[in-house]
């Protein structure tokens, strides 16, 4: 039964409550680095990685420090601190232990510090009162949702490159319209779980 719940949770996080298309978190990298499928996928993987680990650490800080001391109002500021330090640490660790992965993630890793999807997942974990397992799963699945969204978007944008677009719609206008239509499509999954 438990496995079934996790599967449903996966569908819920990735499709029904996609971070970008229905929660509108992390839109900056979604629009910024989605011009090529390759870089978009790298970014998606990096975000998934950081969101998973950030969920773990913010859950620990929240449950063991903030709640016992009755400091729930400090959530945002302490989560930002945790995420920033964590990303920095991961960057150092990767640089030493896996230079190839470090190069593949490149500039995207430090960019994630300011990705609101990461802070969003931490706050959502607290709001929904998830336990440790579900917090980490929420981070991981949410990241996979982000990966799916950004990869789809990059695929669409690559095709937009060579299509005839009216002058006034070129560049960001058409991208935003595309993102809006994709969000509409994802709205159709609401209520699936």
């Amino acid at each position: 039964m438990n496995n079934m719940n996790i599967l449903l949770f996966f569908v819920d996080c990735v499709i029904c409550n996609n971070f970008i298309f229905s929660r509108f978190l992390g839109c900056c990298p979604f629009l910024g680095v989605s011009s090529k499928v390759e870089t978009a996928v790298s970014m998606g993987i990096a975000v998934t990685f950081v969101m998973t680990i950030a969920s773990l650490f913010t859950w620990m800080v929240n449950t063991w420090v903030l709640v016992p001391l009755n400091l729930r109002f400090m959530e945002t500021v302490s989560f930002i601190l945790v995420i920033a330090a964590l990303v920095q640490f991961i960057e150092m660790f990767l640089k030493k232990s896996s230079p190839s992965l470090y190069r593949a993630l490149g500039i995207y890793l430090p960019l994630i510090t300011t990705n609101c999807a990461v802070l969003g997942v931490a706050t959502l974990n607290v709001k929904n009162a998830y336990n440790l397992l579900y917090s980490v799963l929420n981070g991981c699945f949410g990241g996979i949702g982000f990966l799916l969204a950004i990869a789809l978007m990059a695929g669409v944008r690559e095709r937009l490159e060579s299509s005839k677009i009216p002058e006034s719609m070129k560049g960001f206008p058409i991208t935003l319209v595309t993102a809006g239509l994709m969000a509409l499509a994802f709205m159709g999954f609401k209520g699936l779980v």
């Binding site: 800080v61 420090v65 903030l66 001391l69 009755n70 400091l71 400090m74 500021v77 302490s78 601190l81 945790v82 330090a85 920095q88 640490f89 150092m92 660790f93 640089k95 030493k96 232990s97 230079p99």
Partner: peptide
């Protein structure tokens, strides 16, 4: 007081950890 102390302590711990990591993982 608690708020300041907690945030300060968190910052200090992370700072020290990063400092240590910076030396340990220096390339």
């Amino acid at each position: 007081f608690y708020a300041c102390a907690v945030l300060g302590a968190l910052g200090l711990i992370f700072g020290l950890a990063l400092n240590y990591a910076g030396k340990k993982f220096a390339v």
